[in-house]
Design a protein around this nucleic acid. Structure first.
Lengths: 308, 308
DNA sequence: ATAGTCTTTTTGTCCAAGACAAAGCGGTTG
DNA sequence: CAACCGCTTTGTCTTGGACAAAAAGACTAT
């Protein structure tokens, strides 16, 4: 196919087709075309047959937009802005940590499909740092590194899924290894509106388990109605919900209110995740958790209030 | 969303939308529409807004067609046939083994994402049966079971990928554990025209390694030009190619001829896989391998010819 | 002010018919 | 039998229009 070194160079230099953009960025063909019509971006070139050819810079901007949309923003507001402005919005919210550079090692292992070595390396760090530090520091750093890798185009969506599966397996095994007999309190864990927020849920579960709680996770996307029933069935003393950044606040709030009404007053309701960051501090009967680091403290507080 | 038990029942009973078909069957929306226009199949119903609604039976037939297409057949010939006729074409070629029922256990473990237990179960069987029997009997049975599961709609494409990754990791680890020092002959392994045929390649590598050969795998999709170079660089005595059922015979043949010309006469060229089954027995200088079971024998023959 | 309701905008996905290039098939010829 | 060449098949892209689901914004009442 590419035995002739000259044949494909122009195509590579000018850009990629609409299918490739769909695959690499994760925006549907229909969406890409309708954005072009409505918002005037992207503005792909055309090849000799009139088909769209997206230059690399436009693909990069599309990736930025997609990422901000995954955090709940809307395309109409984003597509008009400059790349610099978009980058700023993306840079501010996070810790902009320096620890991210330390996570560079995942990328080559993932790219070259050295999954066994990757798994080994992760296990080793987990053993060295302990579950709590691993979940609070290392995993978020890795997640950020993977996200950045996707942004720059060096990591494909499929590889991101692979990474997520790996981490999840590791955490599950680790949680499973902790003795859950006689531990207290019993915590029921779940999310309402999916996202691939499953990993976040698992991280919370790991922290709770590491601090001696007995967790029951329902997985993601549990209908609000079922949660109360499950809480009764498992005799949970705390119900904890996680909301991703993509979850619109109104829906989060409504779900929490509905669930609070359905739960017995004696059962505590905890809520956390990027979708609530800062906002709903004062919902009656709902305790908002600001970050992963707060989990251990909140649990200790609960115990103090319970026993005292 | 689905708190009202009545709201969604009609939609579930009549069928699924075009996006769901694309996701579940793996045929693009454009393709589905153009088939309808050209071949008169499928003939989806329309909902109140005029959007296509595919009944379950038509989805099942589409899955059949897709599977036969993956074996190299063309849609124009398939879409006119009855489901019975299609099933017959699909039923004949395989071993129609009874061992498949024994592989039923994978499905629940995969569906419930019990990947750790799945991995454990696979490792255990591998240890019990030995690498050779595991690759020749168990893995093909599992593959068939997974394929059937996809056919019946019980397994999603993503879950199939998950399974494949798992098996591949297991085989890689197993191959890695075999000492490769001083073994002979040196075999260069690869495929030309991708497919997800990577797993097949790995199975061959495992068998060769288990029989004392020193394998170097280039992975899938190596350009024909590079193979000869790699053979020289690694000092390989045998070059082995694998062709999936989807690879058209002409391309396989051309590649083999071209490669045979590029390789030194002293280097043997072996070819196998469903893409060659029965056909090209007498290409000059190319040894056709009929099945996984033949690999050990062929290797022994080579050693006999070499030493004697 | 905060919560609830209604209206308006935004946004993704679907539809239709047409077009063309790349790949494959089949018949013909050496 | 093998290689060539024209015809057919087939997937993907195009345009422009349309609408429903979801979210934002305006407004009112507590």
């Amino acid at each position: 196919m590419n035995s002739s070194p000259l044949a494909q160079i122009p195509a590579v230099e000018t850009g990629i087709g609409i299918s490739a953009v769909e695959r690499d960025v994760g925006l549907g063909k229909d969406t890409l075309r309708v954005w072009e019509r409505r918002y005037g971006f992207p503005t792909p070139l055309r090849d000799s047959f009139g088909e769209r050819v997206y230059p690399a810079e436009q693909v990069a901007k599309l990736r930025l937009v997609k990422r901000l949309m995954d955090q709940g923003q809307r395309p109409g507001k984003l597509l008009g802005q400059s790349v610099a402005a978009l980058n700023e919005q993306l840079g501010t919210p996070a810790t902009t940590g320096d620890a991210d550079a330390t996570a560079d090692w995942v990328v080559p292992l993932l790219k070259q499909r050295e999954l066994d070595r990757l798994r080994g390396e992760l296990s080793q760090r987990l053993a060295r740092e302990g579950l709590q530090r691993f979940v609070i520091e290392t995993v978020p750093a890795l997640n950020r590194r993977i996200g950045d890798g996707w942004m720059s185009g060096e990591i494909e969506i499929f590889e991101e899924h692979l990474y997520t599966e790996l981490i999840q397996n590791l955490l599950r095994a680790s949680i499973h290894g902790l003795s859950s007999r006689g531990t207290t309190p019993r915590v029921l864990l779940t999310t309402i509106k999916d996202e691939e927020h499953q990993l976040g849920l698992l991280m919370v579960e790991a922290l709770l388990a590491a601090n001696g709680a007995a967790c029951v996770s329902l997985g993601a996307q549990t209908p609000v109605g079922d949660i109360a029933g499950a809480a009764r069935a498992t005799g949970a003393e705390i119900v904890a919900l996680s909301f991703s950044g993509a979850c619109p606040w109104r829906k989060a709030r409504d779900s929490l209110i509905e669930l609070r009404a359905a739960l017995p007053p004696a059962v505590a309701l905890w809520a956390g995740g990027a979708g609530l960051a800062g906002r709903a501090r004062k919902l009656a009967g709902v305790l908002t958790i600001e970050g992963l680091g707060d989990i251990a403290v909140t649990l200790a507080d609960w115990r103090a209030g319970r026993t005292g």
